[in-house]
Design a protein around this nucleic acid. Sequence first.
DNA 1: CCCCAGTCCTGCGGGC
DNA 2: TGCCCGCAGGACTGGG
Length: 281
Amino acid sequence: MPELPEVETMRRGVAGVLGATIASVEDGGCPRKPIVVKPGLARLRARVAGARIERTARAGKRIVLWLDGGEALVFEPRMTGLLLVADPPDQAYTRLRLRLRGGRARQLLYWDRRGLGRVLLYTPRQYEAALGPAALGPDALEMTADAYRRRLGRSRRAVKVALMDQRAVAGIGNLYASEILHAAGIHPQRRCSEIAAAEWAALAAAAGEVLEAAIRYEGSTLSDGTYRNALNQQGGYQNEHRVYAKAGEPCPRCARGVIQRIVQAQRSTYFCSRCQRARRS
DNA sequence: CCCCAGTCCTGCGGGC
DNA sequence: TGCCCGCAGGACTGGG
């Protein structure tokens, strides 16, 4: 669920860690099965204790803390992970706690209810292999119409599935893929190779508008209430969704279509069959 | 190259 | 009321 807007909101929300020194790394106390921590909690602790956080970044759906030793501490929230500087929604799922000194923030928590997320410490070389340009496409906020056409235009895959391919473009997940295609007026099952240049332009514009609006609203907190910003506050973009999880409702774009739900690559896709046509007319 | 099913995990809501 | 089952979907893997 955390996609580009939610992860970017988390990154901005933890700006108080900048310049801080990591005083300690502790297990969060979650009694469940431990999350994946590489290269293991003990080694990670030994390598980051005393390091200074010089820069925060976002790599697609991951948050990166660049340390003064050149290493990258990467948080990968996957489905239910959160990065918090405030107290968590439920203390029971705090997986990792960093105590900080010398910055504005005094702690940084990694919280994860389902525990599918991971925390990784990379050397620059490891970072390049895992999150460099060969592994991760350009950020969705940087993509132009030409970039979409060049990177996706020869593929025969369905455009919605291709949009979620992080090697093609980084940051778009299931929820925003449906919202972007609806805003662009493109049917999710269209093959990339059959999409015209003007439609790639519409897609690029729609992606920028949807993702930037979602960032302004600080992301989408769905009905399960899991997603929170770094201060444990809900996002607001769920109230702006046009199609996601709205099967059977009238289309807010054309007012006459009805939102459909289909499954693509084992994930729910929502679209309006009237204003997102299966073939260009 | 692409597709599909399965895996990791927990909580929730629908159906009976 | 309570139980079971399916669903949620990010990243990855193995088989075709």
